[in-house]
């Protein structure tokens, strides 16, 4: 069960009308290593992983939904007052033709989200290594978007999200350390 707090994890501010940035941000909305994929991946893996790390997956998976909400807010703010012409010029003409201004779970190139983006191998090490890789890929995506963006307020929010990827990766790496510890072996001193 979840408890919802009606506020964003970090304030989202956008200073320019720039639908092109909204297009890039869709990678983190419905992309292979976006926040939706992350949340679904971690929350689903919880059932078949040793008890010691279930709580970690619950916490991080839940936080990913908070990030998803931030990305949605960014995309919405960057496009809400844009005209169809502006959207077309930003490469969002196809999006407008199908969805008007609605958000949809697809990546920056318009490819719709699929469950094939995520894995649940059932092997705790394989699953955690996938999680670490996903965090690093999301971190890289944030970097590339920051590199292309000249909106300081948006970049501030993106830097917060990138930092969270760093922390999550660290925690998943620690989870691997916990699971590989030789706890079944008798220690004789």
């Amino acid at each position: 069960m979840w408890i919802y707090e009606k506020k964003l994890q970090y304030p989202v501010k956008v200073s320019t009308c720039n639908p092109t940035l909204a297009k890039y941000l869709m990678e983190q909305y419905g992309g292979a290593d976006g926040e939706l994929a992350a949340a679904l991946r971690y929350l689903n893996q919880r059932y078949t992983i040793p008890e010691k790390v279930i709580g970690l997956l619950t916490d991080i998976g839940t936080e990913e939904f908070a990030h998803l909400e931030m990305i949605a807010t960014m995309i919405y703010k960057l496009t809400k007052d844009a005209t169809p012409e502006q959207l077309r010029d930003a490469g969002l003409g196809e999006h407008y033709a199908v969805h008007d201004g609605a958000l949809f779970y697809h990546n920056a190139a318009g490819v719709p989200f699929t469950a094939a983006y995520i894995q649940a191998k059932g092997d705790p090490i394989a699953d955690l290594y996938e999680d670490i890789a996903a965090e690093e890929k999301a971190r890289a995506t944030y970097q590339w978007i920051i590199d292309m963006s000249d909106d300081p307020d948006l970049n501030d929010g993106l830097r917060f999200l990138r930092e969270r990827e760093v922390v999550h990766s660290q925690r998943f790496r620690e989870a691997v350390e916990i699971l590989k510890e030789e706890r079944d072996r008798q220690k004789i001193f």
Binding site: Y10, I146, L161, R162, E163, V167, Q170
Partner: peptide
């Protein structure tokens, strides 16, 4: 809360190189 981490060691400000 602003920086995104409690730990000074883990804080990494990213700037477009």
């Amino acid at each position: 809360l602003l920086r995104g981490t409690l730990w000074e060691f883990l804080y990494d400000y990213y700037e477009n190189p």
